Amino acid sequence: MTARGWFLFSLMGVIWGIPYLMIKVAVDAVSPPVVVFTRCAVGAALLLPFALRRPGLPATVRAHWRPMLAFALLEIVGPWFTLTDAERHLSSSTAGLLIAGVPIVAVALTRYFGDTERLGTRRVTGLTIGLAGVAVLTVPHLTGGDARSLGEVLLTVLGYATAPLIAARHLKDVHTLHLITPCLTLAALLYTPAAIATWPSSLPSAHVLAALAGLGVICTAVAFVAFLELIKEIGPTRASVITYVNPAVAVAAGSAFLGESLTLGIGVAFALILAGSVLATTAGTSRRTTPVTRSAPRASRPEDHVESA
């Protein structure tokens, strides 16, 4: 991996490890639709001036609206609501650890979408170990109202694993800003009615406002640009490996700022999911017999074209 790739990887490991903390703080005071709307609206407002400075935005949307719509639904519209709603009942640490299953699902989906590389014993073992880690984490929550929340997080995982594949296959020639700005704008518009209907009657506290601002600025506007460039640099499957780092950041932040307990079950689940993800996404010795485009050529720079998720 290049120095640029390592920088983007490290940046994303931290930036997308803290949303779980911010979501937990925000959703305790405002509704999930308000959280998602605010996050999308702030992100879109920040990126729109830069997107408009580049020519061809309307033409790009007209030419690629189908895959862009699919990307928006699977990466933003659906997952951000299900994750936010789930954190009304789950701790930020648990949500962050469950999202670590994204690379495992990404491997399975990549195979489904035509990757001809054999999984091999190592990768199958990794999938099994990772799923065991998810089981260790989820079983204690299968009673009461947590089962629905677990289902919502698993839907989030599925969306997060699928959207990068769509972006890399069908949107690799779309500039980063021309992809993410319309998607965020669409999501904000879709959540506007629900946000208005559930808008808080009084101004939330300063720390809730700070959490909402952080979600919009850092975890959305900055994060998406960095993530799409990371996919361009190393491809969607390898980019999803940032979820190795995200749960550690999520657990540490939840413990430090929210007083969430670090139980033995969390430790075991983290170790299993991490080990399983590493094994499942490690390339085997066999080669693909049919090339599959996952990202644009390295020669393109961020200011030229995105190669996209």
Rank of each mutant, 00 (worst) to 15 (best):
V208C: 06
G17W: 11
V306W: 04
I166Y: 03
S31F: 05
S92F: 14
F50H: 01
M68Y: 02
L119Y: 05
E75M: 08
L142D: 05
R294I: 11
A211N: 13
S308E: 01
R4K: 13
G114S: 04
P49I: 06
R148E: 11
G130C: 04
L69H: 01
A280N: 13
H170E: 07
L189R: 03
G17V: 15
A206P: 02
L262C: 14
T2R: 07
M12R: 00
G214M: 12
V124I: 06
K24I: 08
F7E: 09
R4I: 13
Y20E: 08
L158R: 01
L209E: 02
L230N: 07
A210F: 12
I15Y: 06
W6I: 11
P67Y: 09
A72D: 01
T60D: 07
M22E: 11
Y160V: 04
I218K: 02
L52W: 07
W16G: 03
A269C: 08
W6D: 05
V25E: 03
T143M: 09
V249S: 14
L131Y: 13
H178Y: 06
L48C: 06
T128P: 00
P32H: 05
A239R: 05
G284L: 12
V124M: 01
A253V: 04
L274E: 00
G259F: 03
L74A: 10
A147G: 12
Y191T: 12
V268N: 07
L97W: 00
I242R: 01
V107C: 13
V124G: 00
R148M: 14
G78S: 14
L142P: 06
V241A: 09
V136Q: 04
V245M: 10
L83A: 15
A252H: 03
S300R: 11
V30F: 10
T60R: 02
A248M: 15
G5R: 07
R4H: 12
P55T: 06
R294K: 11
F37L: 10
L262I: 15
A250F: 12
G78F: 15
M1L: 11
V241I: 12
R287W: 05
F227H: 03
A280E: 11
T290S: 08
V268E: 08
A269S: 14
L47P: 00
W65R: 04
F71E: 06
A63F: 02
L215R: 04
L47D: 01
S240T: 12
T94D: 03
P291K: 08
L230F: 07
P49R: 04
F113N: 05
R288N: 15
T121H: 01
H175A: 11
P58R: 09
V139T: 12
T84A: 14
E233H: 07
V36N: 04
V278G: 09
L209M: 09
V245Q: 09
R88P: 00
M12E: 01
L171I: 09
